Structures are given as structure tokens and as C-alpha cells.
Computed example of a mutant assay.
Amino acid sequence: MSAAVSTQIQLVRRPKGWPEPEDFRIAEVAYGELAPGQVRVANSFLSVDPYMRGRMNDAKSYIPPFVLGETMTGGAVGRVVESAAEALPVGSVVLHQYGWRDLVQEDAAGFTVVPEIPGVPLSLRLGILGMTGMTGYVGLTAIADLQPGDTVFVSGAAGAVGTATGQIAKLLGAGRVIGSAGSPEKVRLLTEKYGYDAAFNYKDAPVRQQLKALAPEGVDVFFDNVGGDHLEAALDVMNRDGRIAACGAISLYNSTERAPGPDNLAKVIQQSLTIKGFTLGGYTHLREEFGTRMAEWFGQGKIAYDETIVDGVEHAVDAFLDMMRGKNTGKMIVRV
């Protein structure tokens, strides 16, 4: 066993509004020889996700904020290159939360072994076969109680969670699925590749106007990744007993001022709506169920996916910022 040096990304300043490259630094961290029970993992792919923006603020949330001057964390998949833990031999492929670095050395308990699937990139463990796919599944089933024939609206539909959610909704029996995206190319992708029945570019006209035109018979389930004007528009068209799964509010993450609330919250009362926010931490018991169903769909060729890949851990911040600006299609991934 030997010493090693890891390249890592650290937060050095809390962003005000949109993060800037100067809020981060690249650090070289030396690892000594492995202690008993530890493993050293060479990361293959790192995940950058919208929730990470919230962790850059010093604010109480469902997950602790990043600590200034320390390496950030996040989803990653890699391979064990040295091991002092019998349960994780060299060569094992593992999922973990020690992202934002090319090499990690920690106790074996922090890693989960996953099988390699012939012909399937390891990166999919961070996307459609992992957290983002499961987010869509949990939101539609455990939160929104999707029923066959339901009309579903997904905001931010061309992102990692949105592309998964639309497909899963159709596979679960949704009658009509509508999505929003930020460019004509993404709108076409939603209907031509991801099975959306209709989609619109939220930059073309007010969301309220466009959604109403595409959902003349109303919406039963709203899977919200955006918040803001998308939530307001959905409230206008929700059918009685409609369900809203609040997954994210990316339109608000970089705001420096409090955003006004929807002007039509009375719809919640009038239409007997249910709004429930969620994070995956409370639904780990559904991991096996999701894994079984997704493996079946994937094996049957019923699942499409896109990845936007940025090479090099030193470009992880660029990947994160591009993802926050919607420059990705599907899952944004950093390839180490």
C-alpha cells in the first residue's frame, strides 16, 4: 500500500446569487497508507446536481451546508484500487457520496458495491439507474399516487430528473404527459425521444398561457422541478383532487431576494389539491422496488437517456454552473 495525492474541489466563499468560479478552489490532498478497514477508490464519474446549490448557503435545510475550506461531497461512482477491508476487494465498483475529487480514501462503510452491467456505462448509476431515476419514480408513486389515465405535467422536463420522470409516468400508465424545457431543441427531444405527448419552450410565452393551451382538460399530477411561474401555471389548471410532487425549485436557487408566492394558492382549497415536498432520504425503503422495475424496463429497451459529459475533475465547477444554467440535456456528469 502506498501514499497518494487527490485533486479535490473546495468551497472557499459562500455565493451571493449565482455562484462564481472564485467561490471555489482546486486543492491537492495527500493520503497516507490505508488504515485497517479503509479503501482507496479512483472515481470514474462525479455527479453535479441542483440541490448542491442550497448546500453552498449557510442555512438550515434537510442536509448540512458545505463547510468553507473543506472538500465538497456528492454522488460518485468509482473502482476500489487499494483495500484494507475484506468486504471491498480491489476492483469492486462502488457508489458513494465522496464526489468533487478524483481519488478518495475512507472507511469501507461509506461505499456500496454495485454490479457492473455489460455494455452499460458506470455513469448511469448516477443518472437514470440511480438517484435521478429513483427521484422520478418516488415522486410519481409515493408522493403523487399516479393513477392510470392521469394527465401529468413535468417542469424542467429536459433535465436528468425530468427526462426520467416523463418516461416512468408513461410506463406507469399516465394518459398524457406534458413537459416544459428551455429551447426548441429540448422541446423536440422530449416528444421525439422521451415519450412526452406535448412540450413547450417556457421562454416563448408565459407558462400560464402555454400550459393552459396544452392541457385543456386539466392536469392531475404536477411533478415540479422549477417552482415560480411553473407552479403558478400548474395551480391554474389542476383538476379536482390533483396532486403536486414538489421536487425542486431551481428558478429560485440563485435569487438574492425573496420571491413572491403564487397569486393563486386559493386553488389548493377550491380544487382540494395536495402539495407534498420530498427528498430521497425519506424513501430509501423503495430503492429495491425501483431497482427491480427500472432494470426490467431498461432491459426491455423501454428507457432512453442522455448525458452531458464534462471531462476532468478540474472542470467540475464549470459543469455545475452549466447545469444550473440549463446547458445540459439529461444528466450532467463529470468524467474523471
Score class of each variant (00 low, 15 high):
M238H: 03
E116F: 07
V90L: 02
G277S: 14
A199F: 09
I333H: 00
R240P: 02
R335E: 13
V5A: 11
Y202I: 01
M332V: 05
W100S: 03
V310G: 01
A249L: 12
G228R: 06
G91I: 11
G74H: 09
R101A: 13
D236M: 07
G228Y: 06
K60Q: 08
N254A: 15
G54S: 12
Q147Y: 00
W100G: 06
A84Q: 12
L231Y: 00
V41E: 12
Y202A: 02
A316H: 12
V77R: 06
R79F: 03
Q105F: 02
R40F: 02
A35L: 13
D107K: 06
R55L: 15
P118D: 14
G166N: 07
H285M: 04
E185P: 03
H315Y: 10
A108I: 01
I168S: 06
T71G: 11
L103Y: 02
Q38W: 00
E232V: 00
K276I: 10
Q167Y: 05
L231W: 03
F200E: 05
L124P: 02
G228C: 04
D102W: 10
L95Y: 03
V39M: 05
L129K: 09
E106H: 04
I63Q: 14
W100F: 12
A181S: 12
M294L: 15
H96P: 01
A144T: 02
D197Q: 03
F111I: 01
E288P: 03
E185V: 11
T329M: 12
I168C: 03
T274Q: 14
G91H: 11
G291Y: 13
R14N: 00
E185C: 05
L146V: 09
G218N: 10
D322C: 07
P260L: 01
Y31D: 11
G175A: 08
G312S: 08
D229M: 07
N239K: 14
A30Y: 03
A87N: 14
G32M: 04
D23K: 02
L252Y: 07
S272D: 12
V310C: 13
G133I: 02
L95Q: 11
S155G: 02
G301Q: 14
V219A: 05
L286W: 12
A266P: 01
Y51A: 01
V268L: 15
Q300K: 15
V77W: 08
V226T: 13
G156A: 10
V113C: 10
F111S: 04
M52H: 11
V90W: 06
A249S: 14
A319R: 01
V94S: 07
G133S: 06
I143F: 08
P260H: 13
A181C: 08
I333Q: 04
N201R: 06
K327F: 13
G175P: 04
P121S: 15
R176P: 00
G99E: 04
E116V: 14
K327L: 13
D145L: 04
R243L: 08
Q270P: 00
V39N: 03
L126H: 10
E288T: 15
D145Q: 13
G110C: 09
E33S: 10
A30V: 13
V138A: 06
G312E: 14
P260A: 14
